[in-house]
Amino acid sequence: MSELRPAQPVPRAPFWQRLQAVDRRILYSLIFASVIIPVVWPLHLPTPVTPESRAFFNAVDSLPSGSVVLFPFDFWPSTLPETEPMAVAGLRHCFRKNLRVVGLSNVGMGGPSIADRLLDSIGAEFHKSYGVDYVNLGYKANYSAVLLGMGSKIADIFPADHRGTRLEDIPLMRQVPNYDSVKFVLIISDNAMTDYWVALVNARFGLPMVAGVTAIMAPKMLSYIHSHQLIGLLGGMKGAAEYEQLIGHADKASLGMDAQSLIHFLIISFIILGNAGHFMMRRQQARAGQV
């Protein structure tokens, strides 16, 4: 049995030192509050539009009515909060311009179902018919074979759509045998598929394309904007909010931007506090001759 000793008072760390190591649970609680508050009480802050988002909008907006747009839903369900608003705004813009949409997915788990759900719901908003105004080709494994093979004959890669209807029985697909009939590619992606669309389809077939990607991926994608391989780019929820603003239909992303603003502000406050603690500690140590 251990010897019982009177409890020793633990010396409390100086305030500035504690400021440098705030318990992460406190940080997380504040972040949580910053997400919830603007959802309950929206701030309706306007979002400045970046040149990349404007270029994205202009590229879709300048397509002639009736053009065929290839719409890859290349994202996992995990990133839906960031990618779904982009896909929804993109579909709204396409359907409003009477563009015909050919959807597909290079993400096997969940991709085709998400494509189905979004195409049907946004298509219904604009009274569009499946098979005439839009179609969902579904998923096929081996992305490189899919992307390259569609350049020769789409029916070789996708003999039937996601619902099992043969392509020759779908009016829209009878007019789209390969990339020659496609005017534009609108990629929504949370993974390296954007790189492959650029490297395999833009480089080899010269199809113009725009992309909506997660915020983490956006800086890397800017190099494709500079090399003119992508015409426009939406980066994360901010890009989606800008696009919603441009098409004049504020939705989930615009609502989310309030929360994002607060969180950014909160993180900056954390950084300032942490640095204040760091400087004060250094000053105190210098005074005490420890440095």
Partner: peptide, 24 residues
């Protein structure tokens, strides 16, 4: 799918704590 989205959203919390610690 909701569990995957939950894990993805945890990133926001982790980015905050990592930024607080790293940016000195």
């Amino acid at each position: 799918a909701p569990m995957m989205s939950t894990m993805f959203s945890v990133l926001a919390f982790f980015i905050a704590s990592a930024a607080y610690r790293a940016f000195r």
